[in-house]
Design a protein around this nucleic acid. Structure first.
Length: 154
DNA sequence: GCCAACGTTGGC
DNA sequence: GCCAACGTTGGC
């Protein structure tokens, strides 16, 4: 089993929105970056877990944990001309963008803030991709070691 | 294949 | 709203 981190802007989709979704499950759509796409399509497996990260908001940080319940399949929002995430270059017979389905495992009692994570960037979390300068990936791998350390912060 | 221009991300 | 950092595009 592998670990991941997935970013979402809570204004568009928060961990509370996931909590209220049918079966507390959603397709993680709208990723439009090839590196992140490759992970969604090829690497993320059923049973893997991911941190749900809130970005571009008052308190950026990790809000909880989700699990992958369905492996990569085409992102339908890319096919819909009216959709915000439409991409004319993604064809039904040759899809360019992919999603996985995620299900809520649990919401943390509190947000583990980016600020707090940064305090460990020099030592315990020195390999954490999220903390690398200029990092912009919306889906990224997390090592077992970093996963476990972050959980101790809650 | 290079690289400038442009768009996006995301923290502040 | 600003801006650094980075990915993507497109001209050459």
């Amino acid at each position: 089993m592998n670990y991941w981190l997935m970013k979402s802007e809570p204004d568009s989709f928060s961990i509370d929105a996931l909590k209220q979704a049918p079966k507390q499950t959603t397709a993680w759509d709208g990723v439009r970056n090839f590196q992140a796409r490759n992970m969604l399509r090829d690497s993320m497996k059923r049973g893997d877990q991911a941190f749900f990260y809130h970005s571009s908001c008052d308190v950026p940080g990790i809000a909880g944990i989700v699990s992958i319940v369905k492996e990569g399949y085409p992102d339908k929002t890319a096919f819909d001309p009216k959709h915000h995430h439409y991409d004319a270059d993604s064809k039904a017979d040759a899809p360019r963008w992919f999603v996985v389905d995620v299900k809520l495992v649990r919401k943390f009692k509190r947000i583990i803030t980016l600020d707090e994570l940064r305090q460990h960037a020099a030592k315990a979390l020195k390999d954490f991709v999220l903390l690398r300068r200029g990092n912009r990936l919306s889906v990224m791998p997390v090592t077992n070691k970093d996963w476990e350390f972050v959980l101790t912060l809650e």
